[in-house]
Design a protein around this nucleic acid. Structure first.
Ligand code: SF4
Ligand code: SF4
Lengths: 150, 150
DNA sequence: AATATTTAAGAGTATTTTGTCTTATTTATA
DNA sequence: TATAAATAAGACAAAATACTCTTAAATATT
C-alpha cells in the first residue's frame, strides 16, 4: 500500500473540507459521518493535521475543523508528509537503512525517478484543484460513493 | 511503504540467487546469513516463491533453493505478485473498494499511469538483468553493504 | 540402514497499525 | 453563570504484520 490508512483518511477528509470551503468550521462528527470513517480515529488524524498547521480547529458549539489557508495553497504532499512522513520518499524500495546516492541498491536507478515523479505529482496538486475535479467529475471519496459533494 | 517486508526480503533473496545462478541449490541458511534476514522468516517467504513455481527446493544435504528457470525469464513483478499480490496494482491509492474506471476517485486520473508505470518497470526487469547491474555497479542488497556479489 | 542436513509446516510471540472508549478541556449560547 | 456541544488527550482493544521456535518430512552420504 502506498499510503497508510490514516493518510488515506486524512486525504479524503481534506478533500471534503476543501470542497466545502467557505470559512465556517465543520464538525468532525459530520466529517466522519459523511465519509464513513470512525469518529475517534478520524479525530486523531485531524489532530495531526492541525498540529502541522494545515487545519485549524475550534472547540465548542459550531466548532470543528477547517483549512488553515485557502485550499489552493495546500498540496496533497503537505497532507501526506504530515501523516506518513517522508519515508516513502526517503527510505524507498528495498528499505535498506541510510539510503541515498552514496550506497545505492539495484533499484535506485529505476525507482528514483518514479519516486520523484510521485512526489512531484503530490506536490503540484492542491486540495482545491482536486476537490474541484472531484466535484465536477462526480468522483467519489467514500466507499459507497454516497457523498455527492453537496 | 511500497512493498511489504516479506516482499523486500523475497526480492533481495531472488537477486542473490540470480547472481549465483549456476544450477546448484543454495541453502536458505546461507542466504539468510549473507543477506542478514531471519532464517525461519526467510524460509516462509521462499516457500511462497516455491509454491508459485518461481523457485525449486530440495531437502537434505546439499539441498536448498534455486531459480526454477533462467533468471532472464523471471521478472521483478513475478516476485512481487507472488508475495504481495496485485493489490498495489488493483486497489490503489485511496483504498476504496471495488475500484476501477467505473467509479473512480479523484486520484484515478493522476495515479493510474504512475501505477502502471511502476508495474511496467517491474515487468520489464528480469532478475538476471538486475543482478548483473548490481554486480557490475557494486550495488548493495544488504543493510551494511557487506555482501559483495562474490 | 543409520545419520546428518536440509526444507516444510505450523504453532506461538512480538510489534505495529488500526480502531474504540473514556475523560478532560474549551467555547458558544441561553 | 450554567449548559450543551464540540475538540484534545490518552488509555485500551483488535487486527494485521513481522518474526521465532518446534517438530515433521525428505534426501544425500556414510
Ligand atoms: S539505494 Fe536508492 S532505491 Fe535503493 S532503497 Fe536506497 S534510496 Fe531506495
Ligand atoms: S478510483 Fe482509481 S485511483 Fe482511485 S482508488 Fe480506485 S482504482 Fe485507485
Amino acid at each position: 500500500m502506498l499510503f497508510s490508512k490514516s493518510c488515506i483518511y486524512g486525504l479524503r477528509a481534506s478533500l471534503y473540507l476543501a470542497s466545502n470551503q467557505n470559512g465556517e468550521y465543520i464538525s468532525i462528527g459530520k466529517l466522519s459521518d459523511k465519509l464513513d470513517i470512525s469518529f475517534h480515529f478520524l479525530t486523531k488524524i485531524l489532530q495531526q493535521l492541525t498540529a502541522n498547521d494545515l487545519l485549524e480547529s475550534l472547540k465548542g458549539p459550531n466548532g470543528g475543523v477547517r483549512l488553515s489557508k485557502p485550499g489552493k495553497q495546500i498540496t496533497l504532499l503537505d497532507i501526506v508528509l504530515a501523516i506518513d512522513g517522508d519515508e516513502l520518499f526517503q527510505e524507498c524500495v528495498l528499505g535498506l537503512p541510510g539510503c541515498g546516492m552514496e550506497k545505492p541498491c539495484p533499484f535506485h536507478e529505476i525507482w528514483l525517478h518514479k519516486r520523484d515523479d510521485i512526489k512531484r505529482m503530490l506536490e503540484t496538486r492542491s486540495l482545491a484543484e482536486m476537490a474541484k475535479e472531484g466535484k465536477e467529475g462526480h468522483l467519489r471519496i467514500t466507499p459507497d460513493g454516497k457523498y455527492k459533494w453537496d
